[in-house]
Design a protein around this nucleic acid. Structure first.
Lengths: 206, 206
DNA sequence: GTTTGTGAAACGATTCACAGCT
DNA sequence: AGCTGTGAATCGTTTCACAAAC
């Protein structure tokens, strides 16, 4: 398949949000202009993004809300739920475990790992924290291809290596370091201090 | 000043991380190639990024680590500490409050707000949770231009409007909705379910 | 000899604008 | 008449490649 840009993929996910809202309001159709407005982009951009994958609209009418939702969910691989493991049972890990948005969007956190013996065995949101050394054995029994990494910086690469050995193919990284991974593994990093620094730049240059 | 792209600014913040690590190892100079490698980019990209702001290197030698650090900190507006207010004292807000990376990089969370009377008055990491309705009055006394927004989706826009009225000029948004803000206010959004969806796309298209 | 700084070239993403359906 | 789908034009970013500085 033709290479699709990361920004196109992110916008598709955004469009899907608006489509879900529109569905909740029982709207049957939506135009590229309406989708664009809510996503802070242009109607041409919306149509171009969709055109990479097919032509889903009706000229003169717009897009069928349920049909376009289904198509985008298919494109993004969201027609099934995804099992997710979380590594790092600190404050941040615990907060993410309670975040309802994951489950709502089809991402099931099925296990939590840590290496601190004080945390292993404790319960959080219905899950018992397991020893990170069990990771490979557990995933051999129940393959899982998405992990959320919420360890301190020092442990991040080591845990990443372990996750990859266990067959994980996608990592959402909250540790403030870049991860080295083979090219068939996808990583999305969220670096919170970095986000604040870009805001600092914006403030300094008004 | 010439418009600098968001990706350039993010990379500068990344370079700064590596420079800090290099400084900790007492390295005196660093080449664009070394900076590039750690940041997952190319030496030409590093030099181009820096060239928008001046010429900081020595040909044949590279860049002085302390000098380049200082320059980037200046460019990003990081030569002073920034006061930050946090709105939303839920699990996620609490986790962010304990995140040491903010303070380490010069961002001081000075107050936490919530609208839930059950949370107001409780203490978290040395800060008492205040009523969000005090926001305007508090910021009038102590102006603060960065806010971290960690409310549920429903409250996000209302709180944003309040923050803007209180003079906040930059918002790090963890609520899963786009925020409408005037053009002189900067927003960086972190949408965790969206990040997982881009990973799902990557998994579906290997 | 090494590495920067930077125009020029290549590439990629966005916007334009309009023909083609409904 | 209204809105999509899409080539063509535009705009912005990245990469190339080399002269200049050390």
């Amino acid at each position: 398949m033709r290479k699709i840009s990361d920004s196109t993929v992110r916008r598709l996910a955004l469009y899907l949000r608006f489509l879900e809202q529109s569905a909740a309001q029982n709207l049957a159709t939506i135009s590229s202009a309406e989708l664009a407005q809510r996503g802070g982009t242009t109607s041409a951009q919306v149509r171009k993004d969709l055109s990479f994958f097919g032509s889903f609209g009706k000229r003169g009418l717009g897009y069928s809300v349920p049909e376009l939702s289904a198509r985008i969910r298919e494109i993004l691989g969201l027609k099934r739920t995804h099992r997710v493991v979380l590594v790092g049972a600190g404050k941040m890990g615990g907060a993410l475990l309670h975040y309802r948005g994951f489950r709502q969007h089809g991402f099931d956190v099925v296990a939590v790992y840590d290496k601190d013996p004080k945390k292993i065995g404790t319960r959080s949101n219905g899950l018992m924290v397991r020893d990170v050394r069990q990771l490979e054995a557990d995933l051999r029994k129940e393959p899982t291809d998405i992990a959320i990494l919420v360890t301190p910086a020092e442990a991040a690469q080591e845990v990443t290596d372990r996750l990859i050995r266990a067959g994980v193919k996608a990592i959402l990284n909250f540790a403030p370091v870049p991860l080295a991974v083979p090219s068939d593994v996808a990583v999305q990093s969220v670096n919170m201090a970095l986000e604040l620094e870009t805001l600092s730049y914006a403030l300094a240059n008004r």
